[in-house]
Design a protein around this nucleic acid. Structure first.
Lengths: 251, 251
DNA sequence: GAGTGGTCTAGACCACCAC
DNA sequence: TGGTGGTCTAGACCACTCA
């Protein structure tokens, strides 16, 4: 009697078959994760990658297509394929959905309020997959539009990934934080989840945003991930939506 | 002296070159728009479409790939390619991003409050590309979770597209409104824009949502489009976010 | 087993960019 | 002019569904 194949202890939910182009995709992600190509740089041409991996150009192309659709890579005809970055003009504030009621450009100014190292409380540690009490960096800042404060951000980062992060470093830097994180700490934010609620401004928040206590604010809690679905930033923004709104496109 | 080519009066922003697969895509969209294939039905196979349009299967495939990425079509291996619909279990509430703090499934109950024909005020007419005073249908309803009201929706529809829409018709129908709109009125919602704000509950809203007046609520204003970027629904939802949140994924 | 979508290949040619 | 990504084709074979 032939031996029965051993069934897996837990029924697998994953795909039973992995096409070649997905394996190639995994190899390219590994290169990105390992720092073989840095943010803003070009990766090798499709033909070169095809030769390296021993597959056809079309297979590499399909792998890159998916990575471009996920905004990990950017294709530029005639020039090459580049590692996506948050530092460029066009990609600035890629994750910020705040829009002014009038006009197009957010055009926001930044004001750093605080940056200190703390021990992570349990509710933050859990989301960042750390242990309660682990080292953590806490940043607080305001975003201004036309001179008026619109957003109050609290940002929490794992201390071990952002060792040299100081108030000085942050205030000297131009452009979005995520650009600094890429160049200085090698941390790429590639994906995020936001939980949005309406809350009432407490006294401290009201003072900072120059609104009355109890004013309804948009609470935007964002958990950002790097390669391998590893959470590396927790952020809570409080938005004054009297002159701005959060824009979302559905399809 | 050779004649100069005449420059366009307005510099064209559009693409100077339209590949074959985009033209095929346009033909398929025209078929969808014209009702050749209805919501939930299958479209002809790739091979059949390739013969009909006189191109290779690969070209049809690329056109369908884009339409599937935009959620206009759904591919099912071994079965065929189907016109996307809001009426199916898996696709139910495709545009609703509300999630409970505990658990996964929203599991919402519906309560129809009102449905009447009105003349469109200017601010609604403008967004629906109608004239102020044109016929309009106004619907008001509540969504409940575990017996408690969570969402108050006001929905405005162009009167000429929804001629037979009555309270009876709406209350008898099971499943999402968008499913009814597809089957009864041939209107497919394929895309939407949302503007999200935090607002304070007024007296009437507070009573309906069973919260205190002034409670912060999420205001979600949604403009939905059908084929050809034609706006066909304006909706304003007021969400009580004490036990639920609006979820958004960024990448 | 027939029909569907999904993968992979090889090759030709086009559009765009930089030198 | 050469290199890059972008399009299009033709054909082989694989995975999935259903009768």
């Amino acid at each position: 009697m032939p031996a029965q194949p051993i069934p897996p202890a837990i029924p697998e939910a994953g795909p039973s078959f992995s096409p070649l182009y997905r394996q190639i995709k995994g190899l390219i992600i590994a290169g990105l994760q390992g720092g073989e190509w840095k943010a803003g740089e070009s990766i090798p041409s499709e033909i070169e990658l095809a030769q390296r991996f021993g597959v056809s150009q079309g297979t590499v192309r399909k792998a890159i297509d998916e990575l471009a659709a996920e905004n990990l890579l950017v294709r530029r005809q005639g020039k090459g394929t580049f590692v996506a970055t948050h530092a460029e003009q066009q990609q600035q504030y890629r994750f910020l959905r705040l829009m002014p009621d009038e006009g197009q450009d957010p055009g926001l100014g930044r004001q750093l309020l605080d940056c200190k190292r703390q021990r992570a409380p349990a509710w933050i540690a859990k989301q960042l997959q750390m242990r309660a009490g682990d080292a953590m960096v806490e940043v607080r800042r305001l975003l201004h539009s036309a001179g008026r404060p619109v957003v109050l951000d609290d940002i929490w980062l794992p201390g071990n990934l952002f060792k040299g992060l100081t108030t000085e470093r942050l205030s000297q830097h131009r452009g979005p934080f995520y650009g600094l994180f890429e160049t200085e700490f090698g941390v790429h934010m590639i994906r995020a989840q936001e939980k949005i609620r309406a809350v009432a401004a407490d006294a401290e928040t009201a003072a900072l945003l120059q609104v009355a206590e109890g004013t309804p604010l948009l609470s935007v809690e964002r958990l950002s991930f790097t390669y391998g679905d590893k959470p590396v930033e927790l952020r809570r923004g409080l938005y004054n939506t009297s002159t701005h709104f959060y824009r979302n496109d559905l399809n």
